[in-house]
C-alpha cells in the first residue's frame, strides 16, 4: 500500500485527498446544516420583529452552503448549486426589490411607497417591507456569498475549472 502511494500519487494526490474527509466533520455538518439553514431562514422571515434580518439571514444561508462545501468537497457542492442558480437568485433579488419599489411609482406614488399597496390592493404596508426583506436582500446576499466562495475556490483544485466553465453557459 505504501509503495503504491509513493509511486503514483503525485499527479492525483490533490484530487484524491480532496475527498477523503474526516467522517467526524462530515457527520457534524450533516447534523448542523439543517439547523443553520433553518436559522438563516428564521432570521430572514423575522427581520421585522427581532434583531437580524434578511442580510444576516442571507449570510447564514450562504455560510451553510460553505459548511456543506467544506465537508462534502467543493466540487460536488458546485455541481449541486450551479452558477446559473446563483446568478438567477441574485438577479431575481434585485429585480424583486426594484419591482416592489416601482409598482407604487407606476400607480402614481413614490418609489417604495408601501401605502399605495394598501390603497390599491388592500395589502398592509408591513408586507411590502417583508417582501423586500425576504425576496430582495436575502437572496442577493446569500448568492453573492456563495458565488464568491465558489469562484475563489475554483483555482485551488486544478481539475475543477474546466467543468465550472462549461457548466456556466
Amino acid at each position: 500500500m505504501s509503495s503504491a502511494d509513493s509511486s503514483s500519487g503525485d499527479s492525483l494526490g490533490d484530487a484524491t485527498s480532496t475527498y477523503i474527509e474526516s467522517q467526524v466533520i462530515m457527520v457534524t455538518v450533516r447534523v448542523i446544516a439543517p439547523f443553520s439553514l433553518t436559522y438563516g431562514l428564521f432570521l430572514m422571515f423575522h427581520g421585522s420583529g427581532s434583531p437580524g434580518g434578511s442580510f444576516q439571514g442571507g449570510a447564514i444561508i450562504g455560510a451553510t452552503v460553505l459548511m456543506i462545501a467544506f465537508a462534502f468537497g467543493i466540487e460536488p457542492t458546485r455541481d449541486w448549486i450551479q452558477n446559473r442558480t446563483l446568478v438567477a437568485l441574485a438577479t431575481g433579488g434585485v429585480t424583486t426589490f426594484a419591482m416592489i419599489g416601482l409598482i407604487p411609482l407606476a400607480l402614481g406614488g413614490n418609489f417604495l411607497e408601501y401605502e399605495m399597496y394598501k390603497e390599491e390592493f388592500g395589502i398592509k404596508a408591513k408586507w411590502g417591507l417583508e417582501a423586500i426583506e425576504i425576496g430582495g436582500v436575502a437572496p442577493i446576499v446569500a448568492s453573492v456569498v456563495v458565488g464568491l466562495f465558489f469562484l475563489l475556490a475554483a483555482g485551488t483544485m486544478q481539475d475543477s475549472v474546466s467543468e465550472e466553465v462549461s457548466g456556466d453557459e
Binding site: 485527498s17 474526516s22 466533520i25 448542523i32 439547523f35 437580524g52 444576516q56 459548511m67 465537508a71 485551488t156
Partner: peptide
C-alpha cells in the same frame, strides 16, 4: 440569538483550516 449564530458557525474556521492543511499538504 446572536450567540446562536456563533454556536452554529464557530467551527467553520477550524474545519476550513483542517481542510486546507489536509488538502494542500
Amino acid at each position: 440569538d446572536i450567540a446562536l449564530v456563533y454556536a452554529l458557525l464557530n467551527f467553520l474556521m477550524s474545519v476550513a483550516i483542517s481542510k486546507f492543511t489536509v488538502e494542500q499538504g
